[in-house]
Design a binder for these strands. Structure first.
Lengths: 229, 229
DNA sequence: CGCGCTGTTGATACGTATCAAGGCTCGTGG
DNA sequence: CCACGAGCCTTGATACGTATCAACAGCGCG
């Protein structure tokens, strides 16, 4: 592990408040590994042997069923994934693979659980993290259950727009195929979605998106703070 | 509060391991109230002032958006709901109403958070509870994203069948309109779903369901332990 | 250079929602 | 006690959202 990675990890909400000894113990047991892109890290159904932290790169969480595949989330630096499975000492409910060359910290589950049992501050940090992740998940669920695909797309574009507060334009952080899978639609449908959003002030040129009339798009998207935030 | 309710509450995974003093403190601050059916308990968007525990009856969690409404969960005795919002000291992401006459325990959020801060065992119990709820939510999300409505119905029937390990028959625990909303489909579609499942050994007569050929239905449903379990 | 992948567009089919109508049950009030 | 009305459920006709299949353009990479 590079010495200058440690502060980033230590600064995560999950590890920030735990005591120094516990953190050192965790880091001592952990592995930092580099992976090329498109490497499978975890498989749905396998026991949760590690908690993962993405230090650099990107990890796609996905699931397959009956010949279909869907993206459940994208993990970007610096954050952890599959905490719930580690805590419950259960099987992963998602598979995960790198989408680009990545550096990943792997912390053995037993160490997480051991320190969780003895360090109250860590337990509380896990609570806050899980509660937050849970609420994000609820929003995604409502998003899918209450909105048609094109509105999910419009809202996602608005979120990306707001995150990169820059001028009018931003880059999609992943290819359109992946975006379609995140939104729960086919690539063909996403393409048509972009076409109809043109009328609401969305210009697409490759991965570059320009929103020329944010208010118009916002009205179309039916923004809802308890789904989108 | 009736004295014989306390053991049931104390025995919940959430409260089981906390120390006696903390539990007494919580119960001291709590209210136990009776509500008729169809009473709104919480409203999406309002601050999470209470943690709720259903002692008797049933609570439906739901959300509205753009003229639509969908059921996000049914809470039956004895369990709590909206723990995540309480912990994050945030707004409810769901609304909740009784579907029948119910007795509900209401614990002020501040008390939950205060004891969470000082009782490590309680913090750990919350972790385990949240992690479990989170995993249930992930499964629901995958269910919705990866399966068509009729397969969701088939799997739900199989789950109800397995829960009430009785002979071949069981009663739907709620009316079909609600079941449709849980499954993310319209009542009309649910009705047609039942009709096509007849061919796979599902007999419907009012709220009484009889599964005559479990294996056949199971094959049709494409059961997946990482969605259904 | 050509292969393969992504993305687009069109034609078509399927899943699902909507609208409408009618049967049924059940609770209420005459 | 019956009659009525409200709500649930079902069924049919139709429209819409979305997926599938196919073809092709553009691009990057070996």
């Amino acid at each position: 592990m590079r010495p200058n990675d440690l502060p980033d990890i230590r600064d995560l909400p999950l590890f920030r408040s735990m005591d120094e000894a516990s953190f050192a113990e965790l880091m001592n047991a952990a592995y930092l590994q580099k992976f090329p892109r498109q490497v499978d890290l975890i498989f749905e159904g396998e026991p949760a042997d590690f908690l993962y932290v993405v230090i650099e790169g990107c990890v796609e969480l996905f699931s397959r069923h009956a010949g279909r595949e869907t993206t459940l989330g994208m993990v970007v630096p610096v954050s952890s994934f599959i905490l719930a499975a580690v805590i419950r000492d259960a099987a992963y409910l998602m598979s995960g693979r790198t989408t680009e060359a990545s550096r990943i910290l792997m912390i053995p589950s037993e160490n997480i659980r051991a320190i969780f049992e003895k360090d109250g501050a860590f337990a509380r940090a896990i609570v806050r993290e899980l509660a937050l992740d849970f609420r994000v998940m609820i929003k995604e669920y409502k998003n899918l259950k209450l909105r048609p695909g094109i509105e999910r797309l419009a809202n996602r574009l608005l979120r990306l727009h707001d995150q990169t507060a820059a001028a009018g334009s931003f880059m999609l952080p992943y290819d359109k195929k992946t975006l379609a899978s995140i939104l729960g639609m086919t690539p063909e449908n996403l393409s048509r979605g972009f076409a109809t959003l043109k009328a609401y002030g969305v210009d697409v040129s490759g991965n570059m998106i320009t929103i020329t009339d944010v208010d118009d798009l916002r009205a179309f998207a039916k923004v809802n703070p308890f789904i989108d935030q």
